[in-house]
Design a protein around this nucleic acid. Structure first.
Length: 687
DNA sequence: ATAGGGTTAG
């Protein structure tokens, strides 16, 4: 046999490790077993290394655990196992193995310590890390640059910047790895200014900036939203030729995406000779972030054409675009594909699945994903809390919040937005106030404008407009546009024209390019019968150049295609049939339910849908009429609308659901309306 | 034979 000696077997294993090839590695393992070489310490270490390199940490541990007792006194074997565990992301087990190694009185060497320290750093295990540090001091390994850089990483990850900087400056202060570790920790700990000044200091001292330094610095500029600095670093990258490193170029794509400069992101992307899944995902997420969901979905499809397999990041990214453009069928396909790859239970994937299903109105599917999630963090719970609230299940949201606390998951800033949003949808004032107070008092999270906006919405909707004004006036910070908008919305429902004027005036200053406050104020006047004032506001809006309107449109998915409907449109190939169906709908709800149109809503929230179109031909009615023709009985009708549904369409569709005995799920710009055969809507007629 | 730092999300 060719490999029957320890040296050739270990050479074969080394080759398998280097190429991460499991099959040849397993063959060499089999040969080692049949030749009784597996207990040889050199071969055992190679086997552990091979299985680790092939992402089989359990197999590596098995080889280690079946090694001869005498081999276990060998620190190299231990070091190899510990390094393999760290490389496979299992820092906890690595620390545990180090503990066993010490318990067995095996002395760690200068290779073992950096690895264990990096495990402690990634787990932020400062107490364990200090013990290892002590161990390094006693063993006299502190002068190693490897030990020093991992100590810098440990202390900076554990928010002890003082110790980290002391070690950095003690010796080897020209080692870029220690600097990089510090910069990364500062960025992760939101100490962006510190990170950038460290980067500048490195540059000033003439230290070598490498392919690790640039991504960290770019990441930092991205989080700070500092495009000037970002561009400077980009220039430096080009000058030093580091743009040919994929990680650096990926960081550039990500940064421009985060800064909203999608043209720059695309330019870097287009010029890259090679792209990996991170490159594609960075651009995809950038597009999704600025709301270009269709472009993001197209990019995902291009990625697949280029033969790049989606990982959990790409999957989470594309799912959020599915949610954003209500591509439910594609979302289901992505879900199935992720299940085939076994990544559907990854935290970020299940979190985005919950969001996608909830935002597509499929709250049952969202709950099913939630129930199947092996791990749930604050994002998981928040996604379902918000999802329930959007779908008219505010009470379920509040119950979920209690369960979240029972499960020991700490709510964060966003959780409270979802929770207060739920209180407002459920119309529960006292629990809302209690949660609002507990947020700061119990969890130490400062109230943000979003929380005030939810509270003002809650108070306004329950008729406590004066309390809403008090809350706004008592805000610690300056009220922003979202807060005034919430107040204006409350005025819209309670027809308080005086207050609406005040809120609208502030909004004209705070958000001068936004047409919505004009339309809302105009609607308040219309609802109060003050047609003259309503017209005056709309003329003002036009005079200020804000008349460019987003046209109202509704759409539905059918057999993988999207059918779009515009108000009063007669372009659909079966337009005559659709108009006839609308006529039939109106006649039946008139005869069976005594419905007459509410013309007070002729002026729309975002805008008029065109004077030519009467209420009866609003886009959502055309879409529902087409659905009644084409969607088989018993199947829910799912319609999406880009603007808020108008009051008359809302009433009409509730009655259509009733007389036709169909479930209609309408998602408008604000929330979901689940209308069932009983003739009620999940939104409680407040939206 | 064994070692330290990086990019992607919600």
């Amino acid at each position: 046999m060719r490999f029957a000696d320890p040296y050739s077997v270990s050479a074969a294993l080394r080759a398998s490790s280097a190429a991460s090839l499991l099959r040849p590695g397993q063959q060499a393992h089999a040969l080692a077993l049949t030749s009784s070489l597996a207990s040889n310490p050199l071969v055992a270490a190679r086997l552990v290394d091979m299985y680790s390199a092939c992402h089989r940490p359990a197999a590596a541990a098995l080889v280690f655990d079946s090694a001869q007792p005498s081999a276990l006194s060998n620190p190299v074997l231990w070091s190899t196992l510990i390094a393999g565990l760290v490389q496979n992301g299992d820092a906890r087990s690595a620390m545990e193995r180090f503990r066993s190694m010490r318990a067995g009185a095996v002395e760690p060497n200068r290779f073992t310590l950096p690895t264990v320290l990096s495990a402690c750093a990634s787990e932020r295990a400062i107490r364990f890390g200090r013990q290892v540090h002590g161990c390094a001091v006693r063993a006299g390994f502190c002068s190693s640059r490897f030990v020093q850089s991992s100590l810098v990483s440990l202390y900076s990850n554990c928010a002890d910047l003082g110790s980290a900087k002391r070690i950095l400056e003690s010796s080897y202060s020209d080692d870029p790895i220690s600097w990089n570790a510090l910069i990364v920790s500062c960025t992760r700990g939101a100490l962006h200014a510190d990170a950038l000044s460290l980067f500048a200091e490195m540059h000033r001292r003439g230290l070598e900036l490498d392919e690790f330094t640039y991504p960290s610095a770019l990441n930092c500029a991205a989080y700070m939203g500092d495009s000037g600095t970002g561009r400077c670093i980009h220039c430096l990258v080009l000058l030093t030729g580091f743009d040919s490193h994929m990680h650096v170029a990926n960081a550039l794509v990500d940064m421009y995406g985060k800064l909203g400069s999608l043209n720059c992101a695309r330019q870097v992307f287009d010029r890259m000779p090679n792209r990996d899944v991170v490159t594609w995902t960075s651009l995809l997420v950038g597009l999704a972030r600025q709301g270009s969901h269709d472009a993001a979905l197209q990019l995902y499809s291009d990625m697949r054409v280029h033969g790049v397999d989606p990982d959990e990041f790409a999957t989470a990214g594309v799912l959020s675009s599915c949610a954003g453009s209500t591509a439910l069928e594609l979302g289901r396909q992505v879900h199935a594909a992720s299940a085939r790859r076994g990544i559907d239970t990854f935290l970020r994937v299940s979190n985005s699945l919950i969001t996608m299903y909830a935002r597509s109105g499929c709250i049952k599917d969202a709950c099913a994903v939630f129930d199947a999630s092996p791990r749930r963090d604050a994002v998981t719970w928040t996604a379902l809390i918000v999802g329930c609230a959007q779908n008219g299940r505010g009470r379920d949201s509040l119950r979920l919040y209690d369960e979240m606390l029972e499960a020991g998951v700490r709510p964060d800033y966003v959780t409270f937005i979802g929770l207060l949003f739920s209180c407002s949808h459920a119309g529960v004032v006292e629990p809302g106030r209690a949660h609002f107070d507990s947020m700061e008092k119990v969890y130490g999270i400062a109230h943000g404008p979003e929380h005030y906006a939810c509270m003002i919405d809650l108070l306004g909707r329950s008729g406590r407009v004066e309390e809403a004004v008090d809350l706004l006036e008592g805000m610690s910070g300056k009220p922003d546009a979202t807060v005034w908008k919430a107040l204006l919305a409350a005025c819209r429902v309670h027809r308080n024209a005086g207050l609406a004027e005040r809120a609208a005036e502030r909004l004209f200053e705070l958000a001068p390019a936004d047409a919505v406050p004009y339309v809302m104020l105009s609607n308040v006047y219309s609802a109060a019968g003050r047609w003259g004032d309503a017209g005056r506001v709309r003329s003002l809006m036009r005079a200020r150049g804000l008349s460019k309107k987003e046209p109202g449109r509704s759409w539905m998915e059918q057999d993988g295609a999207v059918h779009v409907f515009r108000a009063g449109e007669g372009e659909h190939e079966r337009a005559a049939e659709i108009f006839a169906k609308v006529g039939e709908m109106m006649q039946r709800i008139g005869e069976e339910e005594g419905h007459t149109a509410e013309t007070g809503f002729a002026l729309h929230d975002q805008e008029e849908e065109g004077k030519a179109a009467e209420l009866a031909h609003h886009s959502e009615r055309l879409a529902v009429a087409w659905a009644l023709i084409s969607v088989p009985p018993g199947k829910p009708i799912r319609v999406y609308k880009n603007l808020r549904v108008c009051g008359d369409c809302h009433t009409t569709l509730k009655l259509v659901a009733k007389v036709y005995e169909r479930t209609i799920v309408l998602r408008d710009a604000n929330c979901f309306h689940h209308m069932r055969e009983e003739g009620f809507c999940s939104c409680g007629d407040y939206w």
